[in-house]
Design a protein around this nucleic acid. Structure first.
Lengths: 250, 250
DNA sequence: CGCCTTTTTGATAGCCGTCAAATTTCGTGG
DNA sequence: CCACGAAATTTGACGGCTATCAAAAAGGCG
């Protein structure tokens, strides 16, 4: 613990208490749709931040669930692994997104969450969130929307895994990354991937070699440029057509 | 509207008002963990039932979301379809399970729900559910668990679609059906499937012919018997070993 | 009972996984 | 800052699993 002289000044305290209020992610994250007073209440609940170094775990499968995490900065993956060693990446998570929703059901984490770059997350004690959401209907409602959105996202991935070919999967993946980056103010056509080919492959139900080949093919067709982890999308429209035209003719 | 003389008698009113209280699915459905008084409150919100004939829609993609549905009897599938005609079954739903969770996010249904046999569902107006869950914390909490469980289930399907071979997928599917039927008091080793090979295939990311072949293979190995839609599981243990032993040796 | 849907089974083709090796990139420590 | 070794990526060759096409058989509904 720090000595008292190192406690935050009043200004710092104000910043802490209103961490959600002043957070640049306010419009992306849990506080969406709340008024200033409600955001302050939420901000008191969300008082702890946690740094997660690249490669280290935010949480592990089987550990007790106590809090959701909102990504404040950085990039993480979640993955489940079977007894037999098979691993499945279930998601990649950017700023403003919530982790831990799967753990509510059993109060145990059902997946590992691992930082793919140095990251910072806000800890949201779940019991407290439920408590204050009783008095802030719009918070409760938005939380339900977030959970629902995760279900919709998963259904989209099921569709992808169930009926798309390798190139379609990768195109869908790239466009998804592009869109999410654009929402956050980054370039939609020029970005660096944080994950390896193997992690992309696990997410897309493909082997890393197949991912690599699909990248090369899209590059040969001049739709994108690939330089290791750096991606440049030359033709967004054409990339979109790659998403869903495998079995048009039927 | 019915004339007053057709309003329910007192006895009927009592049965209606306590529909959740007397429902045989009380321990499987939304009221889990509620005391009698709370179940009564919930029962007032869940006052409408709807019959859905085999083959007809409970809801369609794109229509306005107003209520969740709890399956009271019967069996339904949910599926999404892309512009290009590709279809993906996202789930099969038995008694006590909740439909419509995906629609909360956009207030539009993101999938079709179709009855695979004559079914009956309880309509749960979502706004009212949120309203009463403010005063019944255990209801709110259980609802969150249900949504979370759906996310976990979807992640399991992603794992299945992403890394299992045809025979493993089918074994996983059969064991899932078996377990869910057992919970509901039916035989775990002797049941009728309600869906076609094509629907199973869509759910499992396989073509119907591949599903049929996988059935035949399991039958040749004397693990199950297949007679069209009737399934008999002879060796549950051996079926379980089929779930996850494709790439053990690595 | 008859038609249509569903299911099964076979033959073939194609996509992707597997194995392998070369090359590049990245992290760490000197 | 550079050098080294490990990790990641790319590319090729080949094989296997599943999709596709086809046809026959079985089942179900009006």
């Amino acid at each position: 613990m720090l000595p008292e002289s190192f406690l935050p000044t009043n200004l710092d305290v104000a910043q802490l208490r209103s961490s959600c209020a002043t957070c640049s992610l306010r419009e992306l994250c849990l506080p969406v749709g709340l008024n200033d007073q409600e955001v302050d209440i939420l901000g008191e609940v969300v008082s702890y931040k946690r740094k997660v170094k690249r490669g280290s775990y935010l949480h592990r499968t089987g550990t007790k669930f106590q809090a959701l995490y909102a990504v404040k900065s950085g990039f993480l993956k979640t993955c489940i692994l079977e007894e037999d060693g098979r691993q499945q990446v279930t998601g990649f998570h950017m700023t403003g997104e919530l982790l831990g929703l799967d753990a509510i059901s059993t109060e145990l984490h059902t997946c590992d969450a691992i930082a793919l770059e140095d990251s910072e997350v806000c800890e949201i004690p779940f019991a407290k969130l439920e408590e204050i959401s009783r008095t802030i209907p719009s918070l409760m409602h938005h939380f339900h929307k977030i959970m629902s959105r995760e279900i919709v996202r998963d259904h989209g991935v099921m569709m992808l895994l169930g009926s798309m070919k390798a190139e379609e999967r990768l195109a869908t993946f790239l466009l998804n990354m592009s869109r999410r980056l654009a929402i956050r103010g980054y370039s939609e056509s020029n970005f660096n991937l944080r994950m390896t080919r193997e992690e992309i492959g696990s997410y897309l139900g493909l082997k890393l070699e197949t991912v690599s080949r699909a990248f090369s093919k899209l590059q040969d067709e001049a739709v994108i440029s690939v330089n290791n982890k750096h991606i440049q999308i030359h033709d967004l429209q054409r990339l979109k057509t790659k998403m869903g035209n495998s079995s048009c003719a039927t």
